[in-house]
């Protein structure tokens, strides 16, 4: 019997007051461990779709099921609890809190979930080490490079071992070197079994990190590569910029502990 889908979106529409539909009858299924890139021009509904999956927004019609939970039916509190337990989010502009240290930023989701502090701290140390930013734990995000900040954001997203990692233009604010590092990182995370949903304009990111690409146009699926790209060890390894090691400044993500396993 096949495993239930990580994401099941059925015929969703989203209409904002007085505007054209952002989503118009979109359906999509994502399997556990899959890495899906959503591409498309501005205004095609990519970010709206991502927000629906995260429970940050609700469809006007249709249903969104994530990890077996009807996200579109959750109230604000339940959605927040669902998010912190099952979803990690990565943003284009990192969205780290400037007044908290790197460590405190990473700890935040666990603290909000009431995780015992020793366990949370151990998990944060593990992630920061895995992502190669352990030495910045006491620093404030403003002092880090863009790539480093995005690594911290990834660490924060993985903190509560989410079932699903959502990334909204994760390389959009980075230079090419830092963007390549983040691509490698996401590929490695996915290789460890983490389901990944990417929204991007970056064709290189979509091509190298995603086992499947869905292109949106005018709020519907215009193209889906489902089944056309085989996902195997070689493909995943090809995610890396040099095709071998993935890692950033001062660290590697291969061969370490398995921080994404649940």
């Amino acid at each position: 019997m096949p495993a239930p889908p990580a994401i099941a979106i059925h015929d969703i529409t989203k209409r904002y007051d007085g505007a054209a539909s952002a989503l118009a009858g979109l359906s999509l299924t994502v399997a556990p461990g899959e890495s899906l890139a959503i591409v498309g021009p501005s205004g095609s509904g990519k970010s709206t779709l991502l927000n629906m999956v995260a429970g940050l927004d609700r469809p006007s019609t249709g249903s969104v099921t994530v990890d077996g939970v009807r996200v579109d039916r959750l109230n604000e509190t339940a959605a927040a609890k669902f998010r912190r337990a099952r979803i990690g989010m990565i943003f284009q502009f990192f969205n780290l809190l400037d007044d908290l240290t790197v460590l405190d930023n990473v700890l935040l989701p666990a603290q909000l979930a009431g995780t015992p502090s020793a366990r949370a701290r151990a998990r944060a140390d593990e992630l920061l080490g895995y992502l190669g930013v352990a030495r910045h734990g006491g620093a404030y995000p403003g002092r880090l490079s863009g790539g480093e900040r995005q690594r911290v954001a990834v660490a924060r997203a993985l903190m509560n071992r989410p079932a699903l990692l959502l990334a909204d233009e994760p390389t959009g604010a980075l230079d090419s070197v830092a963007a390549a590092q983040v691509r490698d990182l996401l590929a490695a995370v996915n290789a460890d079994g983490q389901t990944l949903l990417l929204v991007t304009h970056d064709a290189a990111l979509a091509a190298s990190c995603a086992s499947r690409t869905v292109e949106l146009a005018d709020g519907t699926v215009a193209r889906d590569t489902h089944g056309s790209v085989a996902r195997d060890a070689e493909t995943t390894a090809a995610c890396g910029t040099d095709g071998s090691a993935v890692g950033g400044t001062g660290g590697t993500v291969t061969g370490g502990p398995a921080p994404v396993s649940r």
């Binding site: 509190t77 927040a80 609890k81 998010r83 969205n95 809190l97 935040l108 909000l112 509560n160």
Partner: peptide, 16 residues
């Protein structure tokens, strides 16, 4: 307001 969006995105409930 932006920080509030961030903490909500990472799972802070309205009550929190």
């Amino acid at each position: 307001v932006h920080d509030l969006g961030v903490v909500k995105a990472v799972g802070m409930t309205p009550r929190q």
